[in-house]
């Protein structure tokens, strides 16, 4: 206990200094990894804070037709298996191809939980299992989910899946099981570990597309904030006023 407390104390001190250092050099152009990573890493015992809001920026113009590296990475990261039953198999992220009704312009893009600020799934959940973390990540607490699926009825993005069968071979960092509802966690385990990115974003970058950016929307110096300021983006179903944490560019 005391050893860990010391380590955490050390971490906080170090983080504090790192923060000062980052602030001092904020005017100097840094690589995006350092700029976003150091500001967002938190100590193990530090709870998520409403000073941050995790978000995602998807650039549809960079998303390649036929590529589903993000989907594969997500499935692998969270242990989602293809059981050959597409109607009941869980999909946390999916590729959708859309055509403009008026112009015929075709876009392809990844679609997942939009991590709404005023999330309908959180409103309707009878037990409070559907919840939003202080830093904006919408999650399902499987310990209190009773599997009523009302959240799936309420979600405007069809972002949620119900686990329709007994599961084995779950990965350690992503518990999931029969009878509960689940959806994109924004790789909360990676963000809490200080990775500063998600499996889908990393896979997209590894393919050289860089269509998915993760970052802190409340940090004006984060890569995502700067990009959101620089060019027009949109929320899906903006008419519902949900203030989504996922924004789309180039649609």
């Amino acid at each position: 206990m005391s050893v860990e407390a010391n380590i955490n104390q050390y971490r906080r001190r170090f983080l504090g200094q790192a923060g000062v250092a980052t602030a001092a050099v904020a005017t100097v152009p840094l690589t995006s990894l350092l700029a976003s990573g150091s500001a967002q890493a938190k100590a193990l015992d530090e709870p998520a804070s409403s000073d941050n809001r995790w978000g995602m920026l998807v650039d549809a113009s960079k998303c390649a037709d036929g590529c589903k590296a993000c989907v594969d990475a997500c499935n692998d990261e969270h242990g989602l298996e293809d059981l050959g039953r597409p109607e009941t198999d869980a999909q946390w992220i999916r590729k959708v191809t859309i055509k403009d009704k008026a112009t015929g312009h075709i876009d392809t893009l990844p679609l997942m939980c939009q991590h709404c600020e005023t999330a309908p799934c959180v409103d309707v959940c009878p037990t409070g299992a559907s919840m939003r973390r202080a830093d904006g990540i919408v999650l399902v607490d499987r310990h209190t989910c009773i599997g009523c699926r009302y959240c799936m009825m309420a979600c405007p993005y069809k972002a949620r899946s119900f686990v329709h069968e007994v599961l084995e071979n779950q990965v350690t960092h992503q518990p999931r099981g029969k009878g509960c509802v689940e959806s994109c966690t924004l790789c909360v385990h990676k963000l809490d570990a200080g990775d500063g990115s998600t499996a889908c974003s990393e896979a997209c970058a590894a393919e050289g597309h860089h269509a998915i950016i993760i970052g802190d929307l409340k940090d004006p110096n984060s890569d995502i904030s700067r990009q959101l300021r620089a060019s027009p983006t949109r929320q899906l179903r903006a008419d519902l006023g949900l203030n989504t944490g996922v924004r789309y560019k180039g649609l």
């Binding site: 990475a73 692998d76 990261e77 969270h78 242990g79 499987r142 007994v166 599961l167 071979n169 779950q170 990965v171 350690t172 960092h173 518990p175 999931r176 099981g177 029969k178 509960c180 990775d195 990115s197 499996a199 990393e202 896979a203 970058a205 590894a206």
Partner: peptide, 20 residues
């Protein structure tokens, strides 16, 4: 029912390609 009963990591995590 939900938690992994042995330590288990994603199968292809090392293939994701990031330096980290």
């Amino acid at each position: 029912q939900c938690h992994a009963a042995v330590p288990r990591e994603p199968k292809h995590r090392h293939k994701l390609g990031t330096s980290q």
